[in-house]
């Protein structure tokens, strides 16, 4: 692959492109970890948020509120610099980046999934209750299957947000597409000027994000969406 690209484009262009594409895998891994971690934590928070116990609901509400209000960049600083220095331990940069992105993701997904569950008419709950189903049975058998449909589009849409979010992890020393590209852009090598490297990186990010955006849009058209999805940006 490296030889092929160097052969096609020559050095340094071929080498740079190879290194960018190689580093892209870490962007993908980190995104996958954040999505899996955030999905798991998010599911737990969603359950707390709709649980019958009031204290559980308040706790989940506070959690969602805080991690939706906190800037991702601050979470990265807190886990990449703050926690290690506070505890006086070394924290692996993968762990720090994953933790920050997981919390960030979990809050968003919990919010989306909560709205999805609560968008199911109360008549469904009452109907199930009338049949003698318990809370958790109703949730699992009646409500969730309907809620999953409408939450699919915003959930996939948020993947785009996660991928874009991973671009900030280089700030705490994570090595990915962003950090490798930035290094090349700063290097005094002809053919790696910032006006070449950054558009190239943007294209790679676009290639990862755009299909997911389209998929999300397609799902929204087919399955519908949660009426009030929180905004997505940057």
């Amino acid at each position: 692959m490296k030889d092929l690209l160097t052969g096609l484009l020559g050095a340094p262009e071929g080498v740079v492109l190879y290194q960018l594409l190689f580093a892209t895998q870490f962007t993908i891994y980190l995104s996958a970890i954040a999505f899996a971690g955030g999905g798991t934590v998010g599911a737990l928070v969603t359950l707390l948020r709709i649980a019958p116990a009031r204290s559980a609901r308040s706790l989940a509400t506070a959690y969602i509120w805080f991690f939706q209000s906190a800037p991702l960049l601050m979470l990265l600083f807190l886990f990449g610099l703050g926690v290690p220095r506070l505890l006086g331990v070394n924290v692996n940069v993968w762990l720090a980046a994953s933790a920050a992105l997981t919390l960030y993701t979990s809050a968003y997904l919990a919010e989306v999934w909560r709205s999805a569950v609560q968008s199911i008419p109360t008549g469904q709950w009452e109907g199930a209750e009338a049949l003698g189903l318990r809370f958790w049975q109703t949730l699992r058998l009646v409500v969730l299957p309907q809620a999953v449909r409408v939450s699919l589009a915003p959930t996939v849409g948020f993947l785009v947000q996660i991928i874009k979010g991973t671009s900030l992890a280089y700030i705490i020393g994570f090595s990915d597409l962003m950090s490798v590209g930035k290094r090349w852009a700063n290097a005094p090598v002809e053919g790696t000027e910032p006006f070449i490297i950054y558009p190239l990186m943007a294209l790679i990010y676009f290639a990862l994000c755009f299909p997911l955006s389209r998929l999300s849009l397609g799902l929204e058209k087919r399955l519908g969406t949660v009426r009030k999805t929180p905004p997505i940006a940057a």
Partner: peptide, 23 residues
């Protein structure tokens, strides 16, 4: 609109701050 929404702000920022001025 699609391009902006599907690329990270920081890449856009670096392009605007370092790419365009050199170009």
């Amino acid at each position: 609109v699609e391009f902006i929404r599907n690329t990270p702000l920081i890449v856009q920022l670096f392009f605007v701050a370092f790419g365009l001025p050199t170009l």
